[in-house]
Amino acid sequence: MKLVIFAGPPTCGKTTVIRQVIKRIIVKNLKPSFVKIDVLYADEDEAINKEFGIPAKKIYSGELCPDHCNVVVLDEVVEWAEQKGSDYLFVETAGLCLRCSPYVEKSLGIVVLEATSGMNLPRKIGPMLTLADISVITKIDLISQAEREVFRYRVLEAAKSITIVESNALYGIGIDPIVKKILKTEDVEFPMFLRGNPPVGTCTICVGKKEIGAKNHFGVLRTMEKELFYIGE
């Protein structure tokens, strides 16, 4: 199974991009599944399940930082998708503080950025952009050519080898190059590791343990089904 992780600030158009991607994956007779990790509210799983009839699920991080939640539940999420017989698992993360990066090795990392967030955004978000494989720039029809060019330039300045895809996702424009990359992604493998280190902090994830799965961490944790619990002294 191949794992594709989507990150990006709220309302940047991640779900719209994913919808268009799923549409094209299904046409190829491949089986995708979808998981949304969000903080307090999400209904994309129900919408996507209804629209495409594919396995879809949401996980609320609640009190936990959503990127930390991603780290401690992703192994179970991958197992769940494999049990469902999926060829592709699309994980959409909330990525709120912009200092983390949810991508793991042997997966495809896609950051979705909206052109309307201002020319300085690529300089502000760090590893969510720099560790991604593809940067999808959405809502390109709304801003001036000049700002678009500065935006694109600054994305490349922050992440030299990233693939930029400019997309007007509502109309399905610019989606095919993303699908091509997704098809070429290598299979996900256990044990999974984060690509980058989260910012300095006090929990096991924050201090630099990159192993995926609650069993590899202590402190305040959760699993896919079980609410927050504590393991430690």
Binding site: G118, M119, D141, I143, S144, Q145, L156
Partner: peptide, 18 residues
């Protein structure tokens, strides 16, 4: 090359945000 992009599009929705 971002410094030599060959196309400029100015639409009815296009605006400056800066």
């Amino acid at each position: 090359d971002p410094s030599k992009h060959p196309i400029a599009l100015i639409s009815q929705h296009t605006n400056f945000l800066s």
